[in-house]
Design a protein around this nucleic acid. Structure first.
Lengths: 169, 169
DNA sequence: TTATGATTAGTCAATCCTGACTAATGGAGG
DNA sequence: CCTCCATTAGTCAGGATTGACTAATCATAA
């Protein structure tokens, strides 16, 4: 339900057409989801069928037709429910990078260290980028700080891993 | 490719039948993946078709037939490649819990705090469980420590969020 | 002996997700 | 004024994922 919660929450703030919605999610909401454009359209269609949102055509100048979505009262009920559910539960993140790490013994220590140093560089770059994001208003600021906190913890941990590999297991 | 890497890496350590593989992943590898049993079978079939693994029937006593999988030389090549790829790249985790948090303003502060305290309790419980896991040999120990480090960071951050909400934004 | 329930092993239809595509417009440069 | 290319908006076939199911065996306990 999380993806639907996200779409409902955004539509709750203002009516939006699919493309704008998807673009915003893909560009600015990578912290909490990896929803793609075509998935967004799929979910929006589904929510129309469920009566959580309505859809109407709109045209601006000669630009292509847009499908603009608006949340319904039933959608608002669903939003309230999903929001409470989401806030009260803890869902632990999964770390795909740990899959490789769990087989690190398959490689010579030197090569493993070299590869993990590349990972470290990429991580450090992400962290630098996250630190530079300008202050936002309200709850969005929390997400930005969350990202920084998380990336810092990752960096420290990865350094610890590297130190341990360098020191022979 | 990460799910395939995981399956190849496990089969590389020993031949295994689908059920055992899936059970192990679902019980012990929640840190790095959320692969389900039926998905495991799907991927194993696909890898058989690709020639990365072979499959043969086996029967123990009167127990139902098992499909036992074994990695091939081509599978080993694929494993080596995916492993290097995985170790060298950084893939940031996504936090579904942040979706709700981004709409926390939709609720009265008191209710938001109450809900997030439930989340905190669940998180603290997960952390306590992670701390209690006995020491493992080799790289698996790294994953356990990663989980603890991550959950600790989450707990601190959530306390900070709660403090800020309690103090009026 | 014979319910009862837990464990083992795998299947499948329904749903979800996405990469690659179409197709139109606006603007910059020649 | 014409070509080229980035941007906007959305579509779709095909692959990925899973919840709910079957069906056999084993344990155990009445």
């Amino acid at each position: 339900m999380e993806r639907e919660l996200l779409l409902l929450g955004l539509l709750r703030q203002m009516d939006m057409h699919g493309y704008r919605l998807a673009e915003f999610i893909e560009r600015d909401l990578t912290i909490c989801t990896d929803l793609k454009k075509s998935t967004a359209y799929f979910l929006l269609d589904k929510m129309v069928k469920q009566g959580w949102i309505t859809q109407h055509q709109e045209q601006e100048g000669n630009r292509p037709l847009r499908r603009v979505y608006r949340i319904t009262p039933e959608g608002e009920v669903q939003f309230q429910q999903s929001l409470r559910e989401n806030l009260s539960r803890h869902t632990s993140a999964t770390f795909v990078g740990d899959i490789g790490l769990s087989f690190v013994d398959a490689l010579a220590p030197d090569e493993a260290i070299a590869l993990l140093r590349q990972r470290r560089a990429a991580l450090a770059e992400d962290l630098a980028a996250a630190r530079v994001v300008p202050k936002h208003e309200g709850a969005w600021q929390l997400l930005i700080e969350h990202r920084v906190v998380h990336l810092e913890a990752e960096l420290h941990w990865l350094d610890e891993v590297l130190a341990r590999l360098a020191g022979g297991n």
